[in-house]
Simulated scan of single mutants.
Amino acid sequence: MPQLLLLLPDFLLIVSGYLLCRHTALSRSVWDGVEKLVYYLLFPVLLFVAIIRQPLEFGALLTFAGCGLAVIGTGIALAYALGRWPGVDPLTHASGAQTAFRFNSYVALALAERLGGVQAVAWIALLIAVCVPVCNVAAVFPLARHSRQNFGAELIRNPLIIGTVSGLAANLLGLHLPDVLTTTMTRVGSAALPLGLMAVGAGLQLGALKDAPGLAACLLGIRHFVLPLVAIGLVHLVGLPPAQQVVVVAFASLPTASSAYVLAARMGGHGPFVAGLVSLSTLLGMVGLPMALAALQAFS
């Protein structure tokens, strides 16, 4: 299946990062610098370019965008609720909660092109534009609260939020960058996914998932089981056109953002636990995404 093959390279990049960190001269000290580069430059540029390159028509696609926000909102609510369970470690929950509702924007754009060409890419760009700010705020909040950092200050200077909001503002204002600058930024942003995934592999300690196996199972269950089901129900309930139904369900079935690990590591969270979640999410997405699309077709 095309969707299955699409996510396989992501998982192989995680494996390569793991092997390079442990069996070559590219040791942990090298990957600390890579994490900072990805977090402070590459991912923000990727988000900015992804949002600014596609025209956004919010009025015409209000219901469609609403479905995406409803899916993300469900994930946030359920992930936060897990923190109230007895015995859940606050730091581990604050670090891993984001994996239940964040999504891999790069994979989303690549997948959209396979599903519906330029039009589907524009739809995914809209979902990225409206959902990434919500996801990033929801991801930063528990980490900032647990580390007793000023939440407002963390939001203002968070590079992922800066990249997203600035891209959205530029798009809505109709700003057009010179071609040479757009090309340069696109190339910079394109380095975010491979280096981000390899950094995940370098920090990978699957044994860290044993610190909270129940929490890990619940977070991944939300990401790869609950959210796709919610999306299938929503698109039928509001009567979206078939092509948009496919995009929303695919969006809800994406693996979690690889930058989740970098965010947790940079903000003093449980990085190895999140690295394990990202790795398993990528693997689950390879199977779960085509299954979700098949389920949508079966219910249509």
Rank of each mutant, 00 (worst) to 15 (best):
G201M: 11
A122V: 03
H176D: 13
A97R: 07
P213F: 01
A275E: 05
G276M: 07
L234T: 10
L20T: 04
R28V: 12
V137N: 05
L46P: 01
R145E: 15
P255N: 08
I222W: 00
A144R: 04
L289G: 04
D89W: 08
A70Y: 03
P86C: 07
F58A: 10
V247P: 15
L61N: 12
L209R: 00
G163T: 06
L12C: 10
R157Y: 11
Y80A: 09
Y261K: 01
L62R: 15
I128A: 05
G271F: 07
V107A: 02
T256R: 06
I128C: 01
H93D: 01
L227R: 13
Q54C: 14
T24L: 07
T282I: 10
F141R: 13
L209E: 00
G83H: 01
V121P: 06
V121Y: 00
A243Y: 13
I52C: 02
Y261C: 06
Y106I: 06
W123C: 04
A264V: 04
R84Q: 14
S253K: 04
F225V: 15
G75F: 02
H146A: 13
A120V: 05
A79T: 04
M185H: 12
P194I: 15
A50Q: 15
V88Q: 06
V132S: 02
D32H: 11
L263E: 03
A122H: 14
G207K: 10
G33T: 12
C131S: 11
A100E: 07
L173N: 01
I222V: 10
Q98C: 03
P133K: 00
F43S: 02
P178T: 14
A202Q: 08
V137T: 05
Y18Q: 10
H236K: 14
A139N: 01
Y39K: 02
M286N: 01
V132G: 14
H236F: 13
V247S: 07
Q297S: 15
C218T: 15
P159D: 08
Q244K: 09
V278R: 00
L5H: 15
A202D: 09
Q54L: 12
F64W: 04
P178Q: 15
L197P: 02
R53M: 06
R145T: 09
S258F: 12
L283M: 10
L61Y: 11
G288V: 14
L263N: 05
A122G: 05
S105D: 06
S281A: 06
P55D: 00
L193H: 02
H236T: 08
S258G: 11
A120C: 00
F64H: 04
A25F: 12
V200A: 15
G68Q: 03
P241Y: 05
A292S: 09
L237R: 12
F299H: 11
A112P: 02
A100M: 08
L127D: 06
A199T: 08
T186K: 15
I232P: 03
D32E: 15
L13D: 02
A120F: 06
L209Y: 06
H93C: 03
P159G: 03
I128G: 05
P255M: 04
T256Y: 04
D179C: 10
Y40A: 14
G152Q: 08
C135W: 01
A192Q: 06
